[in-house]
Design a protein around this nucleic acid. Sequence first.
RNA 1: GCCACCGUAGCUUAGCCCGGUUGAGCGGCUGACUUGUAAUCAGCAGGCCGAGGGUUCAAAUCCCUCCGGUGGCUCCA
Length: 660
Amino acid sequence: MIEVHCDGALHEFSEGTKAGEVFRNLYGKKNKAIAALVNGEQKDLSFELKKNCEIGIITEDSDEGLYILRHSCAHLLAQAVTQLFPDAKPTIGPPIEHGFYYDFEMKPINEDDLRRIEKLMKKLVKQNITIQREEYNNETLRKMFEDNPFKIEIMNEKIGHDVGSSAYRQGDFIDLCKGPHVRNTSKLRWFKLTSTSQAFWRADSSREALVRIYGMCYSSKEELQARETLLREASKRDHRKLGKELQLFHIDEMVGQGLVLWTPRGSIVRNELQKFISEHLNLQGYQQVHTPHIGKLDLYRTSGHFPYYQDSQYPPIIGRNTLRKLSDENCSCADLSNLMSKGELEGYMLKPMNCPHHIRIYTSQPRSYRDLPLRLAEFGTVYRWEQSGEISGMTRVRGFTQDDAHLFITEDQIQQELLGCIELVKIIFDNLGMQNYRVRIGLRDLNSDKYVGNAKQWDKAEEACRKAAEILGVKFSEEQGEAAFYGPKIDFIVNDVLGREWQLGTVQVDYNLPERFDLTYAGSDGEKHRPVIIHRAPFGSMERFCGVLIEHFGGMFPTWLSPTQVHILTISEKHIDYANQIADRLAKEEIRLELDTGDDTIGKKLRTHRSMRPAYIMILGDEEQNNETVSFLNPDRKQTNGLLMDDFISKIKLEIKSRK
RNA sequence: GCCACCGUAGCUUAGCCCGGUUGAGCGGCUGACUUGUAAUCAGCAGGCCGAGGGUUCAAAUCCCUCCGGUGGCUCCA
């Protein structure tokens, strides 16, 4: 007999009892065990208990259990794929949030193939195939997988997960794996293959291109359906769809990929946000500046942006005289291209960053310590050549306006100024009800020598980032190697409706540019000193921020941001005069409104105007006209009847002013 | 940039597999109706089917190239 600790109690079982039998014994036949935790290690239910141990149940609906289920589902996928495509070589197939994926070296497949694979998986589930753990020594394992170079590489380097010395067999399929797994394919009922894509072996674009197949997988039909419903609901909030429906922005193929046209309604949202941010900039002692969209190549040679980021910039704009001169010298296209990539040309560049311009404002005057901190802010539009496959709606574009600022400060001011930067983000996120964000502090990778500045400065700046976040009580994670080469940074990352992460704001300490531009200030000692720069764009870009905001509000903006705050609908022709009077009153109060005196039925008008999601929808008929009142649907779409106009105006104005 | 899929009227889409002069709903315009809470009725206009090339007697449909979009991958100062 052996002693088995479980759930705080001691039990006795005969030696060799399987983990699954223990659970059946203790929790009954209907326990949801999917695996066991034996002395802290995940094991199959078929694991035989040989010694005294502590054991815990892993149920199929726990996080750990779901990951095991999904991992097994990935194996099921590989079983189906290798059956349908005997040449396909499985590589790795981990569980992920909501499901799993598996990468294969094989010819690309299409959607029909995906459905065929899914069908076969369902068939394999019905066949109740046992999933069996088999243990081998290292040599035998290598022999077994000798025709799969990926598995060999995994064994050589233990990539991804600890491969151990085991394999799992289900029918004809066997996969190198540490486990644990479910005991039978019949456990894997609630999955769906979702998409395919190309992925590179070991995420390295110079390595083999693999076919990745994604699926989702849950422990019950309800959860799977709930996830599908959620995805459907989320897609209704997609800013690309809402942006079109609500006429907020337009991206035109004739203008160019990733170049956002802000339409009148979208511009209102953007302008209101900029006003809001500007008020806080003033409170925090920023000074606003404006700089042009282009600058000389030399400026970016000095800053280092050219040619360091050349591949992600629009190519230089070459001056007429330069071109003429080159042409006279019989310069070929190849020569020109060569000169361009070396930057040995005089010309201009669309600015990829605002900092060089701001820095030249700094250097336009001699500066003393009394001028610092000098905080220069600009809603500055920058252009970057993003890869075509990356461009998406408003969240990934080629031209965007940063809510940018550069703080020129002394080293001693780093802590205090970082604090102000984070505070600004917090104020605005809180106001907009955006609580679903995380803060990441990017630290340097101590094993890398790519960083500028000395260790002492870095330590101090990293500590200042940490402290600033702590003081404001925001939750943050520290990630090594996420710093920029010129200094540590604090990033604000939000999720969109589909759960994708977007980096919005960033606050970065920079030791590099002050050096490159030889920035100085006169200290109280009369000596020259080097300032430090903090770059900060708390919302990243107006494009991305508005995109995320559209999804956050599902298109239903708070009154102060709403492109049209009140839509006025008349019941019949008789009420047009009254509606005009009301509209005039509201217009005088600078309320943004739309008036519909058309001859549709009120039902039709409501339907039409609801879809545009204005804050208020006012309905005017006999009732209101005779009593000189207004009736309206509130933002929550509950109705208020017979309110005096003065009362409505003070209500909505208060709402707008307080930005609630 | 890479892989898969997609592109028909302002919007949503049928037709494409299996080639034979594009069909609808919404929206727009005109008229009738004058309406009290999520689609009143009728009529009209609107498409060289993303662009270019090829195959064919004949291409929205089959093939190629490009442009644009979607989902991923890689990248993101």
